[in-house]
Design a protein around this nucleic acid. Sequence first.
DNA 1: CACCGGTGTCAAGCTTTGCTTCATGGAGCT
DNA 2: AGCTCCATGAAGCAAAGCTTGACACCGGTG
Lengths: 335, 335
Amino acid sequence: MELSLRRLRTLREVARRGGVNAAAATLHYSPSAVSQQLEALSVEAGAPVLERVGRGVRLSEVGRVLVEHAEVLLAAERRAGAAVEGARQTLSAHLTVGVFPAAGAGVLPAVLADLAARHPGITLDSVEGDGESVVTDVRDGHLDLALLLDYPDAPEPWKADLRVVPLGQDEIHLAVADGSAHGPGAALEALADEDWILSGPHTYWGRAVRTACRRAGFDPRVRHHVDSSATALAMVAAGLGVALVSDLGRVFCPSRGVVVVPLARPLSRTISIAHLPHTGERPTARAVLAAFARAAGAAGLAPVEAVHEGRAGQVPTRSEAASRANPSSSGTRGT
Amino acid sequence: MELSLRRLRTLREVARRGGVNAAAATLHYSPSAVSQQLEALSVEAGAPVLERVGRGVRLSEVGRVLVEHAEVLLAAERRAGAAVEGARQTLSAHLTVGVFPAAGAGVLPAVLADLAARHPGITLDSVEGDGESVVTDVRDGHLDLALLLDYPDAPEPWKADLRVVPLGQDEIHLAVADGSAHGPGAALEALADEDWILSGPHTYWGRAVRTACRRAGFDPRVRHHVDSSATALAMVAAGLGVALVSDLGRVFCPSRGVVVVPLARPLSRTISIAHLPHTGERPTARAVLAAFARAAGAAGLAPVEAVHEGRAGQVPTRSEAASRANPSSSGTRGT
DNA sequence: CACCGGTGTCAAGCTTTGCTTCATGGAGCT
DNA sequence: AGCTCCATGAAGCAAAGCTTGACACCGGTG
């Protein structure tokens, strides 16, 4: 009995997904490779691991037993990996994190600078993607971590098997053209007659803003459907309409032509990091999580417990917020 | 972290043997292969798994941690294998057993016939060897089971990490030429002036017989140093001297010319089977053990708990003993 | 009924892994 | 110094393992 962890992994995936093709897709194999691995497992076990039923396939009794033990073995493998990471005096690993665009521009540079200073051995790759895709990629193990956005009215129950640690609140403000009549403390309902620049209702952002407007008593007249914050803000500067922008999104503000003013009734979204349960035991992953937490604080994101208060003046610039949140930081994030 | 059980196995072996060469020898690899596997493990772990010290090597901290987890993983692998064997409705496997010569001729045929009838899927290979070599081969995993002989005055403490299940007592008798003056119930000391046919003192058998004679008050005059029972018995038939022979050894008795008579003071050796602890959990191994137990009973070996009593007449033939021990058996052991 | 769209498997080819053999570099022993 | 033993490096070759493309099979559908 000379088992191979690789084969056990694919067997488990077949058991989870209920099919050879599905397992092959998530493992980035061809279906044929999965089939061959299962065949090899069957030879090893002395009995077929799965039996054909209809046009699909089902685990045999031996297959079920083997999957059961595969779970034990793979869990032990993960623990071994974490233990090795811990035993290595200098943390080093290669992690991949899924980010949404604003985070990529707004917090990733600070995180990378932080990591480079504290743990030079840790390298971080980022993959841009929306909330839905990154969560499934985390669940499949293709991403170690994923930054997520949670909007107040859109609970996301599909993260039940993931650990989600909140990073902070990303407050949402109003972006208007320079010289606009809308001053600090603008009420959302005062913008009912404006032209809006917003992403479509198929995005979380588009849906969240529409919901907020509707609660304020109007449907925004969206004249320009734009997915990227950078484009939206450029349009605002060009006088095409108004838009909402979050703290993080302000990295995309053009140098001139746009004024960001606080909303009368504060609106915010929660930024958090999702990962598989066992990832939290990896020392390198913990180091990265800590770096993200520091970067969030330095970027001026309010802690999730913070109580929202109305503000009197204009929204502080990011560097002002940063120095308030972390006076010792000199704001070394760039690009 | 994509561990390979094969590499972990060699790492553990290096840890146990304390060197690359030694591990390579027991694993039947070349030293270079072991070295390469360890290098691959080091890359995987992100840190060297072992460090050179003097002209040898020593495990690094990471290596120690990895070995610790390797033990867990390999134990889990063994359990998985046993579970698969159990889940397979028809027992089938290929086991290798180490035997001493008399057992090979005396009990193996019965065992194979028994297995062929009850579990056609189980195939058994046998390797002839002395007690010492088979024990180390069992310990290294090259043999699944090993038949052992234990002599009363020669405890063998080097089987501490093995499970040893006793099969029965193999009684030792006197073999003399046909027409000899020595009758039933011969006392050992009456043979002090005979010419002896015996193996050298480097063998367990030779040592045990010499010890028994010495306890009877004399040193046997060994004129013919013969390792094999078959040759010794042929020499007895030819009138070259006397020899001792065990129940199992009687399969080598020539058809005529030799008379086997019981000793006045019974002498016996214990036959047992040794295996690694986890082997006892394998259903196929249990089936083989059961077959050996049945064969031992059918061969007329007394249970180890049996009390020795002096006997009045000649030693019963093997088929008489067999029918007494197991009346339904028709004695189908041959060659 | 014939036809897709989907399943899993088979066969051939090629890349990669991984072993062996032979040669090299140190560390201890005489 | 010379010798021996241990571990490692380089080259070569065999086997494992993946991919592509073709096939067989089942189930729903026009």
